[in-house]
């Protein structure tokens, strides 16, 4: 029971947005753009914000990180950001609701990037690492981020990094293996523009 509960409860997700890149890649003022992604309440938050650009991308990173977490539950992939509804609790913390799940987020608003980590349990500290990337090629970025995370795991848990690898589930959820054994940690990786990040959290049961 505890094990099962711990698996269900301890899920994480993350997302990083390179502000310069977002500015170049997406025009959030494009007709229809906000309506497709954001709920009426979120649209109000954006229109009432002193810095709508940051609000748009903070909300987006909350949705993305929460979506990645939601994929841990084994649901089929989908593209409908409005199904994840966000609210701000403070300048950094927020909540994302999807179906019966309430997801807790913490966003770091940096001049160059916005990084959000999402957790299924309130106040759980995920180990987050944010770093710069020298190239924007997605294959390079994915490889670099994988390697950086595995090196960190090897160091933290005193494991041979050669035996560590990542396998993705059908829902694209990454899982870390050591030889044939799946490690009891939840991980998430993200990259965008010139920034990347990974988050690691042990799947131990934490009473609410």
């Amino acid at each position: 029971m505890t094990l099962l509960k711990s698996k269900i409860l301890m899920m994480i997700g993350n997302d990083i947005i390179d502000r310069g890149y977002a500015c170049k890649e997406s025009n959030w003022r494009r007709k229809g753009f906000l309506k497709k992604i954001f709920t009426p309440c979120e649209q109000e938050l954006i229109h009432g914000a002193s810095d709508p650009f940051t609000t748009v991308w903070r909300l987006w990173s909350m949705k993305e990180s929460a979506y990645k977490l939601f994929m841990h539950t084994g649901v089929e992939r989908f593209f409908n950001p409005r199904r994840l509804s966000c609210e701000f609790s403070s300048s950094e913390e927020g909540l994302v609701n999807i179906e019966a799940l309430q997801i807790h987020t913490r966003s770091k608003i940096h001049p160059k990037f916005i990084f959000t980590s999402a957790s299924s349990i309130c106040r759980v500290e995920t180990m987050d690492h944010v770093f710069n990337l020298s190239k924007t090629d997605p294959r390079f970025q994915s490889k670099f981020t994988h390697r950086a995370m595995l090196e960190c795991i090897a160091q933290k848990y005193h494991l041979n990094k050669e035996k560590l690898y990542i396998r993705k589930s059908d829902q694209s959820v990454p899982e870390v293996f050591y030889g044939k054994q799946r490690l009891n940690i939840s991980v998430s990786m993200t990259h965008h523009g010139y920034h990347g990040a990974f988050s690691i959290c042990e799947r131990k049961f934490i009473p609410q």
Binding site: S26, R30, F33, K36, I37
Partner: peptide, 8 residues
């Protein structure tokens, strides 16, 4: 985010 642009 660009998937939204594709849809639009």
């Amino acid at each position: 985010a660009n998937l939204v642009d594709i849809i639009l």
